[in-house]
């Protein structure tokens, strides 16, 4: 299945074997049933802190199973106001 992946605030795909290596906005083909943590592992995302995952604009936990066509935004902890 295909995902619309957007990485923010310094996050990038760190897997040199993927075509999205070094990028922060891309479409990615993943196996059906891939979870958010599976996606993190696939891209070798590095963060000292838990990441914020917005799937189609709604926050989801790491064990959430993704679906074909999902827009997945991933952020390190950020804030302001």
């Amino acid at each position: 299945m295909k995902l619309d992946v957007r990485l923010f605030a310094g996050l990038k795909c760190n897997n040199p074997e993927l075509p999205c290596f070094g990028k922060n906005e891309f479409d990615l083909e993943v196996p059906a049933g891939t979870t958010i943590s599976g996606l993190h592992n696939l891209m070798n995302l590095e963060s000292k802190y838990p990441l914020i995952n917005l799937v189609n604009g709604i926050a989801q936990k790491d064990d959430h199973a993704l679906s074909h066509g999902d827009r997945v935004g991933i952020f390190p902890p950020v804030g302001g106001g």
Binding site: F8, G10, G57, I58, A59, G73, P77, G79, G80
Partner: peptide
Amino acid sequence: GLPTYGSNVLVNILNEA
């Protein structure tokens, strides 16, 4: 987050949300 990007780091996360 704040020292690097300032409060404007919020544009993308509010947009995604």
